[in-house]
Computed example of a mutant assay.
Amino acid sequence: MEMHITPTKALSRFIQLLDGVFPSGAFVHSFGLEPHIVLGFVNDKESLKNFLENIIEDQYQKMEFTIVKKVFTLLKEEKLNHLLKEDKKFASMLSYEWAKASKDLGENYLKHIDFDIKTSIVKSYFEKVKNKESYGNELFILSSYAYELGLDEDIFLLLWAKKSLINIASASLKISRIKPSEIQQILFSFDEILEEKIQQSSRKVSNFNPLFEEVIFSHLNLEPKMFTT
């Protein structure tokens, strides 16, 4: 019988790291939720659920899920130079505000987690970031730390995605009439599909998100926001 070892330490660390009140803070792009609410596209439980599902399918499956899996592969193969190139390439695909927030959060996380690192490839990558020889995107830093702690990439993505969806959904509380209990129900419903969506992520990274583009062209004065704590 195959034995399954629960990475208790890794899970404990990431529960702390992914909490929005963590000293390093947390950020998430809304991908146009506020404009969608103002324009009436999101106005109830079902439309909010559809909006969040589209984020998973149009954004996470084609970008974040894909890049994290690539980071884990490069770490396993100990290809540091390729990792540095992907770090820089990922930043170039983000908007200026998004890229800056990702770098700032990545560096802040690194200040707190850069201790007792034993895996040579992770240690080398962290050194490159500290020496300003690599960009240090938040997802690259967190993925590397997850790898260091022996956390499975799918479990890490599940934790990260759920945290991000919670933060995005919370933006609707003050500007819509959707009840908090309904939002909780929506978030619970994603437990059944996130694992499947992670498995079905794209092989190539893409930064085209039709959900984001739609709202930009619909109303140029209503811009998606970046939430930072």
Rank of each mutant, 00 (worst) to 15 (best):
F14W: 05
F14C: 01
I15W: 06
P23W: 01
S24I: 08
A26K: 07
V28K: 01
H29G: 02
G32E: 05
L33Y: 05
L33G: 01
E34D: 14
I37S: 00
V42Q: 05
N43G: 10
D44C: 10
D44H: 06
E46V: 12
S47C: 10
K49Q: 13
K49G: 05
L52H: 03
L52Y: 04
E53R: 13
I55N: 05
I56D: 03
E57H: 13
E57N: 14
Q59E: 14
Q59C: 11
Y60S: 02
Q61D: 08
Q61W: 04
M63Q: 10
E64I: 04
E64H: 04
F65Y: 04
K69C: 13
V71F: 13
L74E: 06
L75M: 11
L75K: 03
N81P: 03
L84E: 10
L84R: 13
K85Y: 13
K88I: 11
K89A: 15
F90C: 08
F90Q: 08
A91S: 13
A91C: 14
L94W: 03
S95N: 07
K103H: 12
K103M: 15
D104M: 13
D104H: 10
Y109C: 08
Y109I: 12
H112K: 03
D114H: 02
D114T: 00
D114F: 03
D116M: 07
D116S: 09
V122M: 08
V129G: 05
N131V: 12
E133D: 14
G136R: 03
G136E: 05
N137I: 07
F140A: 04
F140I: 08
A146T: 01
A146F: 00
Y147S: 08
G150I: 00
L151D: 00
L151W: 04
E153G: 04
E153H: 05
F156W: 04
L157Q: 02
L158M: 13
K162P: 06
K162G: 14
K163D: 15
K163G: 15
S164R: 10
S170I: 00
S170P: 00
I175C: 11
I175D: 11
R177H: 14
E182T: 07
I183C: 06
Q185W: 10
L187S: 12
L187V: 11
F188H: 14
F188P: 04
F190Y: 06
D191V: 02
E195M: 12
Q199N: 15
Q200D: 14
Q200T: 13
R203W: 12
K204R: 11
N207G: 10
N207F: 09
F208R: 13
N209M: 08
V215A: 04
I216Y: 09
F217Y: 12
H219F: 12
L220R: 12
L222P: 05
E223G: 05
F227T: 05
T228C: 15
